[in-house]
Nucleic acid binder design. Sequence first.
RNA 1: GGCGGCAUACCCAAGUGGCAAGGGAGCGGUCUGCAAAACCGUUAUACAGCGGUUCAAAUCCGCUUGCCGCCUCCA
Length: 496
Amino acid sequence: MALQIYNTLTGNKEEFVPVEPGRVKMYVCGITVYDLCHIGHARSAIVFDVICRFLTSLGYQVFYVRNFTDIDDKILRRAAAEGVDYRRVSERFIRAFHEDMQSLGLLPPALEPLATEHIPEMIEIVRRLVEKGVAYKAGTDVYFGVELFSGYGKLSGRELEDMVAGARVEVDENKRNPMDFVLWKGSKPGEPAWESPWGPGRPGWHIECSAMARKYLGAPFDIHGGGKDLVFPHHENEIAQAEAAFDAPFARYWVHNGFVNIDNEKMSKSLGNFITIRDVLDSVHPESLRLFVISKHYRSPVDFSDETVGEAERGLERLYSTLEAATQRSANGRNDDYPDEILKKQDVELFEKLESLPALFSEAMNNDFNTAQAVGYIFALQRNLQRFLDKFGRKNLKGPCARLAALSADCLQKHCQVMGLLMVDPEVFFERQRTLKLKTTGMSEDEVRDLIERRHKARIEKDFAEADRIRKQLEEKRIQLEDFPEGTKWRVGLQP
RNA sequence: GGCGGCAUACCCAAGUGGCAAGGGAGCGGUCUGCAAAACCGUUAUACAGCGGUUCAAAUCCGCUUGCCGCCUCCA
């Protein structure tokens, strides 16, 4: 089955056909840089990261652009509050954003253009709109006349009359229609300003995306993405500006991700119930957060809590644990070659899961990026692989068994990596996991090691009462010991 | 007031006409000095309620109830 994408513009899943064969041009609305990012931003970034990785895995060359809106009222307000130039604010949060995205393990876009570096392009669009009579100057501002663009409302699926009837529109005497929106804002004294045919000012909110998307991706380009809340007015207005200015379709597939909720309520800066990315990553591995996000379909809302993220974390540990065991124990013979019939004989069910995963995975992902279903198939392979390993106790595998386990582990990892999971060596993962979790227990690694050593001595002396006392002492700090022939490992359990 | 979405086991969650994926948690067992992890078994005659279409519906249609989002800055 070919890739189907749900298109907000039509309200249907549609077969994806790129404008240019073999290439995908994708524009995702980035952030307005006036504060730290929260996990809603993380979800959006992860969703489009997975889309980008999957498209790449299909063989497309993906040209991914994600902008920064670095001039806006909120930035100016914050700069004023701090008594600094607005650029100090935007630069600081761009840096923070990059740190967050890197922590999340996201592929960097090909381009990250800044609004303030594209003022001439924006002025050009406004100029065209004014020339065509679709925009008008009122006072020191220039507005887009929504009634003058026949397609207005096609993305969000609403009629102008209905929106006006909603009555929650700001009163502005300059506007001819209450739904008209500003393209160019005359600057007030002390505000940053650029010269324009309408006097000194700065661009309105939506225009930068129309300008930058067109400049770097042409028209129409393939995928335009962002959070659901951008459908209206941001994306609706982008379409209106771009299509009215150039008389050409703007973007083909509009992809919008659902929100992150806290206690079943939308998380947002305005509600003040938001959790920043760095707060979460302080105690949660980025891949745990990623698995949490992709365990649900991207268009549905998702409820964030320590519990739901904890579940994802347990699942991820399982994946890594199986990967580690399979890799280590199949080292002898992983490169030997055997005919399929021989491999199949070692474990029919595992062999069949291994054989079928690629097709099932593609089918799920081709169906509007159904990562939740894809994850389900991956766990099915994981379970069969772990079961197969367990059949041999703790022994290393040899011959066709080793080969089958190695192929399964590779398959597992390969498909996970399309979604940005299992990106590091299991040992590195577990080490990081311990460090992250240990912080929440108030114990140091040396203390833990010391106690383990003392317990080890007690066990040699068959002083099991003392050994169990130490185990219990550690368990009270949520540190769980696991005895292996080669030594004792430990892990930190979830917070209650 | 307008527009849209959602309702699947204890929790999370996939499933758009043909025997209800997957994860977490629980319970019983195997393993273990004791554990943990892992594995095995087990947990929805049933998909908010009612009615309809169909040989066949969680899936399509209608109504009802409940929750959420957008219409204002927001990923």
